[in-house]
Design a protein around this nucleic acid. Sequence first.
DNA 1: GAGGGATATATGTTGCAACAGATATTTCGG
DNA 2: CCGAAATATCTGTTGCAACATATATCCCTC
Lengths: 164, 164
Amino acid sequence: MPEKTPTKTSGLAAELGMQSPFRLPEREVFLNLARTFSELNHDMDQFFKPYGITPVQYNALRILRGHGKPVSVYQIGEQMVTRQPDLPRLVDRLVAMELATKRRCQNDRRVMWVSLTPKGRALLKKIDKPLDRLHQDQLSHLAPEQLQQLSVLLCLARKPGTDP
Amino acid sequence: MPEKTPTKTSGLAAELGMQSPFRLPEREVFLNLARTFSELNHDMDQFFKPYGITPVQYNALRILRGHGKPVSVYQIGEQMVTRQPDLPRLVDRLVAMELATKRRCQNDRRVMWVSLTPKGRALLKKIDKPLDRLHQDQLSHLAPEQLQQLSVLLCLARKPGTDP
DNA sequence: GAGGGATATATGTTGCAACAGATATTTCGG
DNA sequence: CCGAAATATCTGTTGCAACATATATCCCTC
C-alpha cells in the first residue's frame, strides 16, 4: 500500500544535493521527467544491445509487425513513439541488417514500402517476453492506480491547450 | 479540480493509431514517459540553440553557479540531472567556449577544479527568465496538485525497491 | 498539359553520446 | 616504503541524432 513520504524538501532536489527546493514546480516536473526517463532508458539501451538493435529500431520493427503488411517510411515516422527525423536512414540500417526490406511503390513512385523479413520477425519474437519482464522489473513496484495516474498525467502534460 | 477523462481507449494508443490498448500498464507508462520527454526536450533543444549551448551543458553550468566556487569534474557528474558519461569532454567544450575554466587541484593532483567564468555567469543570467517562461509554457496548463502528483510519481517510479 | 505547390524520401554535414580502455594519482595494508 | 586497489580524469572509436537542404514524384488548377 502507498505510504505518504513526509519529505518536505523534494525528492529530486535531495538526490541532486540541492540546498533549496525548486522555485518552479514546472521545472521540477521537467527535471524529474528527464531523470526518470534517463534511468529507465539506459536500462533499455543495455537490454537491446545483445540483440544488436537500439530501442528506436525496435520501435520501427514493431510498427512493421503491427501492420502485418508493407508500411511506408512516412507512416513509420508518424507512428514512432518519439520524434524521429531521419527515418530513411533508420530504415536503411534495418535493411542493411536484413531485418526489413524496402521497394518502391508502383502506383506512387515517391513511396517506399517497407516490410519485415522473417529474420526481423524472429528477432521480435525472441525479444517479446524478456522485454515484458524488463518493463515489469522497472515499474511494477508501483500500484496499478499509480501506473494509471502516471499515464494519464503524462498524456495531459503534452497537451498544451485543451481550449483553442 | 482534477476531472476524470472518460477515454477508455488509452490516450497514447490512440495517438499512435494502435488498434488495441496496451497489454502491460508498465509499458504504457514507459512509452508515455518517452513521448512526453521527447516532446518537451525538443522544445528545450530549440530554446537553447540561440544561446550556443545544449541543455546538458546548461545543466553543468548551473551546477557551477550553484556552488559559487570551483567544483571537480567528478562532482559535476554526480549532480547532473541525467546520466552523463564522458564528463571530461563536456567540461572541455565549456572551457573551449570560455564559459568555464579548469585547473589541477594541488592537494590532490587527480582532481580538476572547474569554475564558471564571468562570460559563463553572464550567459546563465541571460537565460534564467526566458527559461522559466518556457517551463511554464510547457506545463502550467496542469493544476498545481497535478504537477505535484507528477513529481511524486516520477520520483517513485525510479526507486526500484522501498523494501530492502 | 504546363506550372506551382504539396508530398515522400534521400543526402551532406556537424557534433555529440556511449562504451571501452588507458593514464595518473592517492590511499591503505602489510 | 612497496604494491595493490581505489579514485579521478583522459582518450580512441563507433555510430547515431539533428538540422538543412536536395531530389523525385504526384496532384490540382487553369
